[in-house]
Design a protein around this nucleic acid. Structure first.
Length: 223
DNA sequence: GCCCAGGTGGGTA
DNA sequence: TACCCACATGGG
C-alpha cells in the first residue's frame, strides 16, 4: 500500500514536471517576504497578496524584519489592505515577526540549523500561525523539509479520489511525508507544481479538468 | 451583483 | 468533539 502510494505520488510529480517544466518557485524575493506572503495569503487569492507586498516594498519596510516590526500596527494594516482581512493579518504578521526576532533576530540561517520537530511546534504556538502558514515559513523561508498542504493540494487529491475531502491537515501532510524522503527541493517543487496545476486547470468552478496533465494521467482523460 | 480565494481562532452546544 | 462564524479585498 505504501509502495503503491509512493509510486503514484512520484508518477504525479513526473507527469507535472514533464508537462510544466521546473517551477524554480520561491514565493518571495527574500525569506522575510516569504513570511509576509505566508500570512497574507491566508484564505486569499495570491493576486491580492502581491498588491499588498508591492505596497510594503514601495514603503521601504520590507528591507528588514526590524523595519517591518517598527511600523505601527495601524500603518501596517493600511499598507496590506489589498490582501483582505487586513486588521487581522496585521496582528498575525506582527506576532510572527516578534517570534522571528526573538528566535533568531531575523537570521534565518540560525533557524535552518534547528530541528524541524522542535521549531515547528514553537511556530504553531504563535497566534495566527496555523499549520499551513507554519509549513510555508519552514519550507520556503527557513529551508527545512516539511510538506506544505493547502486548499489546492486537498482539491487535487480529492478530485482524483486519493483522499477524502475533509481529511485533516496533518493527515494530508503525512500522505506525502510518509513516503517521500525529507528533501527540501523536492517538497518545494512538488507543492509549486500542484499550485500551478490547480491555478491552470483545477479551479473550484472548473470540476472538469480537460487537458489537465494530472487528469490525463490519473483518469485517462477528463476527470 | 454574486461567488470565490494558497486559513485561523474563538464561541457555542 | 463538532460545527458555526468573523475576518475583507479584488477578480471572474
Amino acid at each position: 500500500m505504501r509502495g503503491k502510494r509512493e509510486r503514484l505520488l512520484r508518477e504525479m510529480y513526473a507527469v507535472m514536471h514533464a508537462r510544466l517544466g521546473p517551477s524554480g518557485w520561491w514565493p518571495g524575493e527574500t525569506p522575510l517576504e516569504v513570511c509576509v506572503g505566508a500570512v497574507l495569503t491566508q484564505n486569499t487569492a495570491w493576486t491580492n497578496v502581491t498588491k499588498a507586498i508591492q505596497r510594503l516594498r514601495d514603503a521601504g519596510v520590507l528591507a528588514s524584519g526590524q523595519a517591518l516590526l517598527s511600523l505601527p500596527e495601524a500603518e501596517l494594516a493600511e499598507l496590506i489592505r489589498p490582501a483582505g482581512f487586513f486588521r487581522l493579518k496585521a496582528v498575525r504578521l506582527r506576532n510572527l515577526l516578534r517570534f522571528l526576532d526573538d528566535a533568531c533576530g531575523f537570521d534565518f540561517g540560525v533557524l535552518a540549523g534547528q530541528e524541524l520537530d522542535d521549531l515547528r511546534p514553537r511556530l504553531l504556538k504563535v497566534s495566527g500561525i496555523g499549520p499551513e502558514t507554519a509549513d510555508s515559513v519552514l519550507l520556503y523561508a527557513v529551508g527545512l523539509p516539511t510538506f506544505v498542504v493547502d486548499a489546492y493540494t486537498r482539491r487535487i487529491l480529492h478530485r482524483h479520489a486519493m483522499v477524502p475531502d475533509d481529511i485533516p491537515y496533518h493527515e494530508l501532510r503525512d500522505v506525502f511525508m510518509d513516503v517521500l524522503e525529507p528533501d527540501v527541493p523536492l517538497y518545494n517543487e512538488f507543492h509549486a507544481l500542484l499550485v500551478r496545476v490547480a491555478a491552470q486547470w483545477c479551479r473550484a468552478r472548473a470540476p472538469r479538468c480537460a487537458d489537465c496533465p494530472l487528469c490525463t494521467f490519473l483518469d485517462g482523460g477528463v476527470a
